[in-house]
């Protein structure tokens, strides 16, 4: 498809094509400043940070005579509108900036975390490790007797602590969604590292028998918290409700399949 929203007759693009990158930049910022600010404000509402990130984004976009912007238009065809692409590009800048200047500066809330939770924060939110990896690192480095259930409890507590701060949006981008709360009876059965890895592997394997679109919907909705409406758009399903229905049934069929192979419900 051809992107239709930033047609080549836009003044900033015309100026860019004429070789006047200064003027192109002036016009570009005038036109897209609101979108850039909205993107930044999706991740931080702190006024100082918004302006600092904006400066960083502007410098990156203006670099080498608007090289990044030119690269988009150098492509013969486009799969996304220019403005959507721009928001995605700015998002990367924002996350990178906040990771460097925010999370790595040890936000004040981290002092309220226990030692274990601070270690989890480092491994999961700063280093981007998976939960299971973080557990293995902790066992190897500092606490060989750490049980997975204690780890899982503190992992949830760390997520809750982060969620209560203004860092939630960016922290979730880096660490991904946290574990969900489980009833005690289930948790006791499930929260064991070996069981978790085994269960995840079985579920992934069982999901493999589903049609690709359903498998993708499950993965994107359940694991990555993609909005159901966006999944429906991407898969050309009628609406968000269709996503809920099909994901629910896909998970139910996975459970049934595992049960037929003799795996207990509690192992899920």
């Amino acid at each position: 498809m051809n992107a239709g929203d930033a047609a080549p007759e836009e003044p900033w693009l015309t100026a860019l094509q004429d070789g006047d990158s200064d003027r192109a930049w002036d016009l570009f910022v005038g036109q897209y400043r609101r979108l850039i600010f909205a993107t930044i404000r999706h991740y931080t509402r702190d006024d100082d940070e918004v302006m600092d990130v904006f400066a960083d984004v502007c410098m990156a976009l203006r670099e080498s005579r608007l090289l990044r912007l030119r690269k988009y238009w150098d492509r013969p065809t486009h799969t996304a509108r220019f403005s959507s692409w721009l928001a995605t590009v700015v998002r990367h800048q924002v996350i990178d900036w906040l990771r460097r200047h925010g999370l790595r500066q040890r936000p004040r809330f981290s002092a309220s975390l226990s030692t274990l939770q601070q270690q989890i924060f480092d491994l999961v939110f700063l280093q981007g490790r998976s939960h299971v990896e973080a557990y293995e690192v902790l066992r190897t480095r500092s606490n060989a007797t750490l049980s997975f259930s204690i780890f899982a409890e503190d992992l949830r507590a760390t997520y809750r602590a982060v969620d209560a701060t203004r860092w939630r949006p960016v922290a979730r981008e880096i660490a991904g969604p946290g574990p969900l709360s489980l009833a005690d009876a289930i948790a006791e059965e499930v929260i064991d590292q070996a069981v978790v890895i085994d269960t995840a592997s079985r579920i992934a394997s069982a999901l493999g028998s589903l049609p690709a679109d359903e498998r993708l919907a499950v993965e994107m909705f359940v694991v990555h918290e993609m909005p159901a409406a966006a999944i429906a758009r991407a898969l050309r399903w009628p609406n968000a409700k269709a996503v809920y229905n099909r994901v629910y049934r896909a998970l139910a069929s996975v459970r049934e399949g595992l049960k037929r192979r003799g795996i207990r419900r509690e192992d899920l």
Partner: peptide
Amino acid sequence: MLRAQATALRFVS
């Protein structure tokens, strides 16, 4: 059950 499935997948993602 749904949460346990989601949590198991998230733990290893």
